[in-house]
Every structure is written in C-alpha cells, then in structure tokens.
Amino acid sequence: MSKHSITISVNGTDHSAEVDSRLLLVHFIRENLDLTGTHIGCDTTSCGACTVLINGRAVKSCTMFAVQANGAEVDTVEGMAEGGQLHPLQEGFWEKHGLQCGYCTPGMLMSAKHLLSKNPNPTEDEIRWGISGNLCRCTGYNKIVEAIQYAAEKLQQEEVAA
C-alpha cells in the first residue's frame, strides 16, 4: 500500500501528514486533526453526516480518500464561526430549532452553506432538494428549512448593508 505526503488546508490552516492511500478523508479530519464535528453515519454515501466543503463545494468526506484532497481547501463546521461570531446559518439553526440530536447538523450546515453560495435566495422547494443528500432523523426537516431561510435572508441583508 502506498504512502503519500499530503498538505491540506483545513479551515484556513495547512496540515501536512504522511498518509496511507486508503485513509478516508473523514478519518483524516476526525482522527488526525481531531476535528470531530464532521460525523460518520453510513457506508454508502447516503446520509451526508460527513459533508465538508472542498474548494467551496459540498462533498461527502467518507467517499473520498485523504490523498485526493492533497492541496485542497477544506472547510468543516469548526471553521464556520468567525471571530466568535456565529455564521448566519449556525444562528438560523439555533433560532429556528433546526437541530435536535445534533449529529446530522454539521453536515447539514455545510450542505446549506454550499447551497446558499450557489443560490442566495432559494425557494422552499430548492432548499429541500438542496439538502436531499443529508439525512436527519430527528427534525422532520421543517425547521431545517426555516433555519436556512433565516440564514438566506440574513446573508442578503448583510450583503445589502455591505
């Protein structure tokens, strides 16, 4: 099995490591970097609990090898809040009760972040389709949709203000 020297920027910080070819990106993030906000929920690319952003796009980090992310910019839930300020999505999830057990939440947040970057003003239907790669067992999704709507509005207000 080949070993590889990789450098991945995670939440803006470069991390270098020597990894086995088969190390899954999600394990690199969780075990090597101790960023345990990214979760694992299935083996079939079905649940989205492991969703991170790679170069700004939401992907399932259990279906990618760490070596593939060499040189990439990875964003995880731990990097969302800036300067002690929650991201509008985090705020929305809190305000609107968009989470219960919290296990799917980091993946949902990352998916929603990518969704809003492509479509800043999504309809309810577009939100539902946009997060359809992420399973939640607790919330019934209503309040996740509301949370994303809250964030979309807030982000647009911030844009106008800027």
């Binding site: 345990t36 906000g37 995880t76 839930v77 731990e78 969302m80 809040a81 985090q90 989470l99 980091p106």
Partner: peptide, 8 residues
C-alpha cells in the same frame, strides 16, 4: 452542536 463541539 452547531459549532461541531458535541461529544459523541
């Protein structure tokens, strides 16, 4: 939970 600091 929203900051990835839960402990499972």
């Amino acid at each position: 939970f929203i900051q990835g600091r839960g402990q499972y």
